[in-house]
């Protein structure tokens, strides 16, 4: 068959969501942020809530998320996105509020805001992209940097004596009464993207239904920070990151999931 017989509007099966702007993403080649943006915005589009969704961008690589996500957005001070989202949700309970944060933002400087927003059970969605490093500032150690992992501020590898242990924020917030759905995903394969998107979609729906805080972690790569090719970084992520940050549902509909059920 000739290509022109296939490439017709009626045969379209996938194109970038209109909820993303035409602006070229500022992320490095192969960075999971783009995919995480895409599925977040697809979920909003599919739920038909674009007009009432307001996002909060963090400080970090995704500081410019508001340039790419075609909804009303606020850019928050470093770590404060859950506080900003709390206010948005409180003063406009009819709207759907989400934050999009990296590991430095959410798990280091914003630990207090994250934990307290989750503990209050704010009806917001928190998308947490964990790539175990500070990407924007040039590859410094993050609270989620793996043990032994090298970064520009742990040049000989992270040690417990010097730096403490990698922080499992997602397991931590799952313990709080206020969280409703807590899960960990990745976006590096088709199957994982589909699962992550399903979780995000449910998170938005449950936030809209005022069921509490929805927390979706996406373990992702940072090929620039990790100093690997995009394909290699995803392989390294599978081998090392997933070992410490296992994918799966941690809390579902307000109930902690038995760890042995994790995939």
């Amino acid at each position: 068959m000739d290509l022109k017989d296939i490439i017709k509007p009626e045969n379209l099966v996938y194109t970038k969501t209109k909820n993303m702007t035409d602006k070229e993403l500022s992320y490095c080649p192969g960075c999971g942020h783009g995919t995480a943006h895409m599925i977040t915005m697809e979920a909003v589009e599919e739920l038909g809530i674009t007009e009432k969704t307001i996002g909060v961008a963090p400080v970090g690589c995704s500081v410019l998320a508001y340039e790419f996500m075609n909804v009303d957005m606020q850019q928050a001070a470093h770590g404060r996105a859950p506080a900003v989202a709390t206010a948005l949700s409180r003063v406009m309970p009819e709207k759907v509020i989400f934050t999009y944060q990296g590991d430095g933002d959410l798990a280091a400087i914003g630990t207090a805001e994250t934990i307290h927003a989750c503990n209050r059970g704010e009806n917001i969605v928190i998308i947490f992209v964990n790539n175990g490093i500070y990407g924007m500032t040039g590859g410094q150690m993050a609270p989620t940097t793996l043990m032994g992992m090298k970064s520009s501020t742990s040049p000989y590898g992270r040690t417990a004596e010097q730096n403490g242990n990698p922080l499992k924020m997602t397991e931590l917030v799952a313990q709080l009464e206020g969280t409703y759905n807590v899960s960990r995903h990745s976006v590096h394969t088709f199957k994982n993207v589909k699962k992550a998107k399903k979780a995000i979609k449910k998170a938005f729906q449950d936030a809209m239904d005022k069921k509490g805080t929805q927390f979706v972690e996406i373990v992702s790569n940072c090929n620039s920070g990790w100093k690997m090719s995009p394909v290699k970084s995803n392989e390294w992520m599978e081998e090392h990151m997933f070992a410490y940050y296992p994918l799966g549902q941690i809390k579902k509909d307000g109930v902690l999931v038995n760890n042995s059920n994790q995939n």
């Binding site: 307001i54 909060v56 606020q74 928050a76 001070a77 404060r80 506080a83 900003v84 989202a85 709390t86 206010a87 948005l88 409180r90 003063v91 406009m92 805001e113």
Partner: peptide
């Protein structure tokens, strides 16, 4: 920062 959020709305 809550003030920031609400003011932004």
């Amino acid at each position: 920062n809550m003030v920031y959020g609400a003011a932004g709305a």
